[in-house]
């Protein structure tokens, strides 16, 4: 159940990956579905992402990674999340993720992983059910 009227979502691009088509499309979609969406832009460090997440008081952090560096980048974000006591935030990962890495990401604390072929609706429904 949403704690407030509008669910607040941060869409972030960690690391050096410059592919942002998916991140932007999801951002538009969630915004049109009535959520408050903040998009970080490219080349974000874990520190920057969490600072924005805290500042914007988001419910959800969506990491978009298509460079293959998803395990190390997600690991950094999740560690910092724990350090700062921000584990109440729902963390989602989207991008080019091999099937075998999904359980590893979930072990890190990621709630769900969205791979190519995901629809905006899938993400919206997941967020609405979990927040």
């Amino acid at each position: 159940m949403a704690r407030r009227e509008r669910i607040r979502v941060l869409i972030a691009k960690p690391g050096l990956d410059g592919h942002d088509r998916g991140a932007k499309v999801i951002a538009y979609g969630l915004r049109n579905a009535g959520m408050e969406v903040i998009y970080t832009g490219l080349h974000q460090t874990a520190e920057q992402i969490l600072a924005t997440a805290a500042q914007e008081d988001v419910d959800v952090i969506g990491l978009s990674i298509l460079s293959g560096a998803h395990l190390s980048l997600t690991g950094k974000v999740m560690n910092l999340l724990k350090e700062r006591g921000m584990q109440d935030k729902l963390v989602l990962v989207g991008g080019v993720i091999p099937k075998d890495d999904i359980p590893k990401l979930k072990e890190l604390g990621v709630a769900e992983v969205f791979r190519p072929g995901t629809s905006m609706k899938m993400i919206m429904d997941f967020i609405r059910n979990k927040v």
Binding site: G15, L16, D17, G18, H43, T45, S67, G68, A69, L71, S72, L73, K76
Partner: peptide, 22 residues
């Protein structure tokens, strides 16, 4: 790889996890 394309050496902190990937 992305660090090279962005003018970073492989030992740069921002190259973490990205060396030799893309």
């Amino acid at each position: 790889d992305l660090p090279t394309q962005l003018g970073y050496d492989s030992d740069h902190p921002l190259a973490e996890g990205e060396v030799g990937k893309a």
